[in-house]
């Protein structure tokens, strides 16, 4: 098989990988959410409110030092919640923060951000000068992105996905919307498995798709086919809902219970947020 053909069959591999990554992420998150740890022991509603309060406070801050302190706090929370630090750092420092770092690189230089020069250099006859406002701005941007990703990762890794979606109720979101979100999440598993099976079948029967146009047809046909199966499935699901007593008014069964520990944590979080906010104004 030629190298080109290998390259062109990549879309099959990548589609299978997308589905597998989704399934792996979802399974791994449930595994961490089921562990015994500090954040796992909290009421999902209280945990969501407190982490969102940290997120909003952090986005309002203009000091990289304070945001960095909050990132350190996230590491402590991850450790106390039985999340391996290596895994946590991998999830929070790569991809989005790394991508953000690449985006802000040009702003380090005097050509984009004028200001006090910190150092100058000459590479292959091209002069470059790093400026103080450029470095400060880039640092603030990247630290903020890394901390916001950390807070969201802490929430999603320590809460069962089904519970996290039900928490949407506390924001006054109608039941029908929460029901749609919960049902959608369940179908994602089915569809991800379906995508993986489709491309495993394509790979085993066709082996290699030799031209990108043919590949595009294969993908489009499979999306159309998935849509057809989707509509068939919705009819079956409705019948199943009817047989279980669905009358058109959705009801969510599980209830959350907050303990004194949850309220103490919420109060502490709000005090920390207020402290950070106040410090942000002084600094």
């Amino acid at each position: 098989m030629s190298k080109t053909l290998h390259k062109r069959s990549d879309f099959i591999k990548r589609s299978m990988l997308s589905a597998l990554v989704f399934l792996k992420d979802a399974t791994l998150s449930e595994e961490y959410a089921n562990r015994k740890g500090f954040l796992q022991s909290l009421d999902p509603r209280i945990k969501t409110i407190s982490l969102l309060a940290f997120l909003v406070t952090m986005i309002s801050l203009k000091s990289a030092v304070l945001i960095g302190t909050l990132y350190g706090f996230c590491l402590i929370l991850a450790f106390s919640s039985s999340i391996p630090i290596r895994h946590f750092l991998g999830r929070t420092l790569f991809f989005i923060p790394f991508f953000s770092l690449c985006i802000v690189l040009p702003t380090l230089f005097s050509t984009v951000t004028p200001g006090d020069p910190v150092c100058s250099f000459n590479v292959l006859g091209i002069n470059g000068t790093l400026t103080r406002p450029g470095i400060d701005g880039a640092l603030l941007f990247v630290v903020r992105i890394a901390t916001s990703v950390s807070l969201v990762v802490l929430l999603s890794l320590t809460t069962r996905h089904s519970e996290l979606l039900k928490v949407l109720r506390i924001f006054g979101i109608p039941y029908i919307f929460v029901l749609t979100v919960s049902m959608c999440y369940r179908y994602l598993y089915i569809f991800a498995t379906m995508v993986e099976n489709i491309f495993t079948a394509v790979k085993s029967r066709v082996g290699v798709v030799s031209h990108h146009r043919h590949g595009q047809n294969v993908v489009a046909w499979n999306i159309a086919n998935t849509w057809n199966r989707t509509t068939q499935m919705s009819e079956e699901v409705y019948m199943a809902m009817l047989s279980r007593g669905y009358t058109g008014e959705p009801r969510l069964l599980s209830q959350f219970y907050a303990t004194p520990k949850d309220w103490v944590w919420l109060l502490s979080s709000l005090i920390i947020c207020a402290g950070l906010f106040y410090s942000g104004h002084i600094l």
């Binding site: 029908i176 029901l179 749609t180 049902m183 959608c184 989707t230 919705s234 699901v237």
Partner: peptide
């Protein structure tokens, strides 16, 4: 209703 949820998943 399931149609909407499945459409979202799609």
């Amino acid at each position: 209703v399931p149609y909407l949820a499945i459409g979202a998943a799609f």
